[in-house]
Write a protein that binds this DNA or RNA. Structure first.
Lengths: 337, 337
DNA sequence: CTGAAAGCGCTTACAG
DNA sequence: CTGAAAGCGCTTACAG
C-alpha cells in the first residue's frame, strides 16, 4: 500500500479517473460498485483512489442526489443535563448509519428554534430531532412547512401531538414516586411541579396525583418553575406553608440537591421525617451522600430511537405508523426514600 | 407581505429568476448585494424570493465557493460534564458567525477520532475543534494531512504542542488548591491524580506539587485513573495507606462526591479533619451539602474562543500567532476547604 | 462494460 | 447593469 498523497489538494474523482486513464463515470461506478465494471479496471481505480487519498465530497454527492446524510438536533441547552445523553444516543446511532449530527441550541426560545430549523435545512439536514423550547409561541408545526416537509421528530418534550415523539412515560415517573412514598407510609407528599408549561411536568404531576388520589390523598403542589430554582427555595416554602410535609418529589437532580440542602439546614432527618425522590439527569444521585432515590430516564435510548426513526423515515419516505413512543422509567433505590 | 409558498418543493434561484423574468445571475446578484443591480430589479427579486420562501442552498454554495460554513467538534463523550459547556460556547459562537456545528463522539478512542475527522471533512467541515481521546496511539498530527490542512484547534486537552490549543491553566488549578490547603494549615495534602496520560492532569499535579514543595511538603499522590472511579475507592485507599491525610484535591466533581461519601462513612469531619477541593465540571459543587469548595474552569469561554480562533483562521487563511491560550481558573469557596 | 453529456443549485469572471 | 457560460464534484440515464 502506497502512502496517500500529502498535498493540500484533495483528490477528486477526476484526478483518480485521469490517473487510471478512464472516464469519470467509470471511476464513479468502480468505486460505488452499483454498476458492473470490468474487474481489472475496478481494481485499478480502487488502488489509485486509495493511493491518492481520494475521499468523495459528500456536499457534491448530496447536491446531486438531492439528499444529504445529516441529521439536525435542536436542544434548548446542552448544559441542561437531560440533553447530553440524548445527544450521545442520537449521534452514535447517526454515525452507525453513516450520518452526521448537527447540533443547535434554541436557548429555550421557540423563535430561535424556528430559525435554527431553517438554518439546518439550508445546511442540508435530511431530518431534524427537536427538544422543543419552553419559551415563546412558535411550535414545530409553524416551521415544518418552511423546511419543506423534511422529517421531524420530537424528543423528550412533546409539544404537539401532530408530530411524532420519543419521550419518557412521565405519568409512570409520577406513579413510581407516589407509590414509593405510599409504601413508606407517607401521608403528606409534596411535588415540585417544575415548569408546568411543559407537558412532561403536567403528565408527571398527573401520574403522581392519580396514585395518591386512589389512596385518598391529595399532594401538595409546590411551584418550582424558575429555571434558576435549585429546589432550596421551594423546600423552604414547603416547610413554612406545610410543615407536615413528609415526602418531596423533586423535578430534577438539581432540585433534589437543593431540597436536601434545605432539609439538612433545618435538621430534618431524611428519609425518616421527610423522604426525597429526584429525577436523575446527571447520573449523580447515586454519588451523593446520602444517595438520592431517583427516577431514571432512558435518555440515551430516546436519542438512539428517535434518530433511527427519522433515518427510517428519510429512507422509506414515510413515517413509521407508531408516531408516539413513551419509554418506561425506573426507580433507582437510594437512601432518601 | 405575501405568505410563502406552501408546496413541498423548495424554491431555487432559477424559480425566483423565472418569476421575475431575469436571469439566474441577476437574481443571484440582487440577493447577494455584492454587485450593483438596478434598484427596481433588485426590489422585485427580493420580493419574489420572500414570497416564494426562497432559501439559498448552502450545499450548492459551499460546493461552488470551495468553503462551507460548518465547524466540526469532536468530543470524547458529551456526557462527560466537561464537554457540554465547551459545546455550548462553541455552538453559540458558530451560529453568531453564521456557522453550524457538527458534533462527533470519539468515545475516548483516538482511532475513532481520526476517522471522525475524515468524515467531518468529507461532510464539508471548514475547521475542526477537538478534545482529544485519551485511549489509543493516534494524534491529530496523524490525521491533519488526511483532512488536507483544514484548521484544527485543540480544546481542553492538549495532546500536541504542534497544534493550537485553548485550555485551562491546570498548573494554576493545582496551585490554587495547594495554596488553600496550606492556608488552612494542612500538612498532609493528597491529590487524586486522574488519568496521568492526559497532560492536563500532569500539569495540575505539577502545580499542586510545586506550591507544596515551596512549603517543604510532598503530596500524597493517589491513583484515580479508572474512568469508573468515583473517588470513593481512592479515598478508602488514602485512609488506609496514609491515615494522616488532612486534605484531598479530587480530580473532578464526581470524584469529590465519592471522596465525601467515604469520609462521611468513616465519620471524618470535613473540613476540620480532612479538607476537600474538587474541580467543578457539573456546576453542582455549590448545590451539594456541604457545598464543595471547587476549582471553576471557564469551559464555555474555551469553546467560544476556540471556535472564534478557527473561524478567523478559515477567513484569513492562516492561524493567529498565539497558538496556545491557557485561561485562568478560579477557586470557588464552599464549605469543604 | 464504458464514455460523453446532463444536471443538482449556486457564484462569478467574461462579454456585452 | 445584465445575461450566457463555465464550473464546483458528483451520479446516472443515455447511447454505444
Amino acid at each position: 500500500m502506497s502512502s496517500p498523497d500529502n498535498s493540500r489538494h484533495q483528490a477528486t474523482l477526476k484526478d483518480v479517473a485521469r490517473a487510471c486513464g478512464v472516464s469519470v463515470s467509470t471511476a464513479s461506478r468502480a468505486l460505488s460498485g452499483k454498476t458492473p465494471v470490468e474487474p481489472a479496471t475496478r481494481a485499478r481505480v480502487c488502488a489509485a483512489a486509495e493511493a491518492m487519498g481520494y475521499r468523495p465530497n459528500f456536499l457534491a454527492r448530496s447536491l446531486k442526489e438531492g439528499n444529504s446524510r445529516m441529521i439536525g438536533l435542536i436542544v434548548p441547552d446542552i448544559t441542561n443535563p437531560v440533553f447530553p445523553s440524548v445527544a450521545l444516543g442520537a449521534e452514535t446511532e447517526a454515525v452507525r448509519q453513516g450520518y452526521q449530527l448537527m447540533l443547535s441550541h434554541s436557548h429555550e426560545s421557540s423563535a430561535q428554534e424556528a430559525s435554527l430549523a431553517l438554518l439546518l435545512r439550508q445546511n442540508g439536514a435530511a431530518g431534524i430531532l427537536v427538544a422543543t423550547a419552553c419559551r415563546g409561541t412558535q411550535s414545530p408545526l409553524d416551521w415544518q412547512q418552511a423546511i419543506r416537509g423534511i422529517p421531524v421528530c420530537q424528543v423528550v418534550r412533546r409539544q404537539t401531538s401532530r408530530l411524532p415523539c420519543l419521550c419518557v412515560d412521565q405519568e409512570m415517573a409520577g406513579r413510581l414516586a407516589a407509590e414509593r412514598f405510599l409504601a413508606r407510609g407517607c401521608r403528606r407528599p409534596a411535588i415540585l411541579a417544575g415548569d408546568q408549561s411543559l407537558r412532561l411536568h403536567r403528565e408527571r404531576l398527573h401520574g403522581f396525583r392519580s396514585v395518591l388520589a386512589a389512596a385518598g390523598l391529595n399532594p401538595i403542589v409546590q411551584d418550582s418553575s424558575d429555571p434558576e430554582e435549585d429546589g432550596s427555595r421551594a423546600a423552604e416554602q414547603l416547610l413554612q406553608l406545610a410543615g407536615q410535609t413528609d415526602a418531596v418529589f423533586a423535578a430534577s437532580d438539581m432540585q433534589a440537591l437543593g431540597v436536601m440542602r434545605t432539609l439538612v439546614q433545618h435538621r430534618i432527618a431524611v428519609p425518616e421525617q421527610v423522604a426525597v425522590i429526584g429525577v436523575d439527569n446527571m447520573g449523580i444521585s447515586a454519588l451523593c451522600t446520602p444517595a438520592i432515590t431517583s427516577i431514571r430516564q432512558p435518555l440515551q435510548e430516546i436519542g438512539r430511537l428517535a434518530c433511527r426513526y427519522v433515518i427510517d423515515w428519510i429512507r422509506t419516505g414515510h413515517p413509521s405508523d407508531d408516531p408516539l413512543v413513551c419509554l418506561p422509567c425506573t426507580l433507582m433505590d437510594g437512601e432518601t426514600a
